[in-house]
Design a protein around this nucleic acid. Structure first.
Lengths: 350, 350
DNA sequence: TCTGTTTATGTAAACCTTTTCATAAGATGC
DNA sequence: GCATCTTATGAAAAGGTTTACATAAACAGA
């Protein structure tokens, strides 16, 4: 009976555990664990025997047990508003490309731009035991931050810079991005402008871009009364509709700044629908520099956002040893204006 | 001493566990667990007392412990070639939208179209303890399937139909999609065609679309010698380059079928660069029906793929009780041709 | 040769749940 | 009023790791 139990190595075709490996190798489970985690601490011949066994028996460690005991799951949570808008995908790819080689994985969640839903999503991720959480934007509910703090879950903000310097971030200044666009349009001589901003409520990125644009426009002597502002969700159809609205309401507008490339594509189409030529009759600037921007006709002038880089930097941050010296918890990246064919000098339309 | 231990409820500001809850509620941890998992089995007053405590103490269950004991992690793995190509994002959104309300989460991994890398990714996900894995395409390495089977991990194939009926799938027939395109071009009277296919090696979707196109073209009396085929990775720049190549080599081509919308956008641009008008001089058909297809100029004629639906169906499959009666393990969806402005009747160019 | 260090390995506890089985109380039927 | 069934709860084991501590062996210094 006891013998049977002792010899019971194959467990009726279950996946093997450290116990099986240890039995076969004639050592203790502690040693097996060591081989897996800090190989250099065990003698070379025993180590290799165990490694061979691991391979032969097809042993795969049980992540739950490992996470339970060590309280490290190698899971990083990513919370974005949506992936529809395409721009967040690039960050996700950047993240994954760095995480995967380190054996870490990404748990994806969407909030649909709803900060209350974000609270629930954060709770869910904490429950899953993630080692860290990546958020978009610096504006969040108090409960969200409380949850994160109480459960001692590391987190970082992306797509924006955190105002609170103690909050790690890998992002850029949305205001300067907006300013870049305003400045360029002013350079081109445009005096009557429109902005199709994202929905600014609860969205610091959308509002930052808008504010930055307006502030720079003012500095460049463009009167606020000559700028019409529309807010739209980031959808192609909304961009088109917004452009139509602007064209109908204000016949003097010669340039439109869009809070995202998705809106810009919609606006481009809206202008064409109305029989306008871009850029001759209307200049359009987007924000994001999606891959496709270059391949549209006309190529879209836009503000480049270091999306992939943010992902990579965030991955670095979470992968880094927590007590490491060169851990960058605040990475400030730059936006750049990418000039293509959708913008041209203003011409009188009066 | 014993007393101190007994009363040691606050654990120095650690996150509380069932033990704390049980102590405060004056019941056993088994009861707390029951309240959390099958509330109806515990008396109403005790249940509510516990629930209140859970809320007050900010108790969040430890997913690792739960997964270890119950061998269910509420984690679903998603393995796609890449998210760059945009089309997989829609499936991801569909998946997440169904998974999240059920408290399940998505673990994302990319293979970069490399089936060997897929093996490693699968191993990693098994290690993380996922309850199921969603794969793209029906062509995989033997090791991948072996790993899945040995560890008894449920999985499903998407973006294709599995040949082996025992393998669950939520997909569509790529061949019929390709056939749709060929048929339509034949209807329009095109006789000399080009295909910019995706890279067919190790990619059953790309090769299926191509084969379906060629087979239907033949059936419609278009000689194989009058169809030029180019393979390109799914990138805008490659689509453009391929179009240029085609235009240089063969001056009689009047229509191009592209294996994806990304390639089609590139091809569209390539044609415009060469001074051709689409659709007057050249018809272009894409594949995927990305959101943007409608907003391009000209609007892109394309084969619609039920991406979001596949995601939702896959989520249903994994969420369903495993012994449930109405569990759909094979969901065959349809592609549809979406006609827009990038295609027109052939006209002689000789 | 003896003491003190270092290195390799083992023992056993701990991580936090879920779940089986047992028990006690309460309800039901005759 | 007794036997039987049902319901609510508790005790304890189990799940597969990691890790602090203990031990044994090998080695170095004197």
């Amino acid at each position: 009976m006891a013998l049977e139990k002792m010899a019971n190595i194959d467990r009726g075709r279950q996946s093997p555990t450290v116990v099986e490996i240890a039995k076969c190798a004639g050592c203790s489970i502690a040693t097996v664990s060591r081989v897996l985690n800090r190989p250099e601490t065990v003698a070379i011949d025993l180590r290799e025997r165990i490694l061979r066994l691991v391979d032969e028996l097809g042993y795969v460690p049980n992540g739950s047990a490992r996470a339970l005991r060590s309280s490290r799951s190698r899971l990083i949570g990513l919370i974005v508003p949506t992936l529809d808008a395409a721009i967040f995908t690039r960050m996700l790819e950047g993240l994954e490309s760095r995480l995967a080689p380190a054996g870490a994985s990404l748990v994806y969640s969407a909030t649909g731009y709803d900060l209350d839903r974000e609270i629930r999503v954060v709770r869910n991720l904490i429950e899953k035991g993630v080692d860290g959480i990546i958020l978009v934007g610096s504006h969040h509910r108090k409960e969200t931050l409380k949850l994160l703090r109480e459960h001692k879950v590391r987190f970082a903000v992306t797509y924006a810079l955190s105002e609170d310097a103690s909050i790690p971030c890998m992002g850029f200044d949305n205001r300067s991005g907006g300013a870049l666009a305003a400045n360029y349009l002013a350079d081109l001589g445009h005096k009557t402008l429109a902005v199709i901003a994202g929905v600014t409520r609860d969205n610091d990125r959308a509002s930052g871009r808008l504010e930055g644009f307006l502030a720079m426009a003012e500095r460049r002597g463009i009167d606020r009364s000559r700028i019409v502002v529309v807010e739209s969700p980031y959808e192609f159809s909304r961009g088109r509709a917004a452009a139509r609205l602007i064209l109908n309401q204000n016949r003097n507008v010669t340039a439109i700044f869009c809070g995202s490339d998705v809106l810009a594509v919609g606006a481009l189409r809206g202008c064409k629908d109305a029989g306008l030529c871009v850029p001759q009759d209307m200049s359009i600037i987007g924000f994001d520099n999606l891959d496709i921007a270059e391949y549209l006709t006309p190529g879209l002038t836009t503000v480049d956002v270091p999306a992939r880089l943010m992902g990579e930097e965030a991955a670095n941050y979470f992968l880094a040893d927590q007590n490491s010296l060169d851990i960058h918890s605040r990475v400030e990246l730059e936006t750049r204006l990418i000039v293509r064919e959708s913008t041209a000098p203003a011409r009188d339309r009066q």
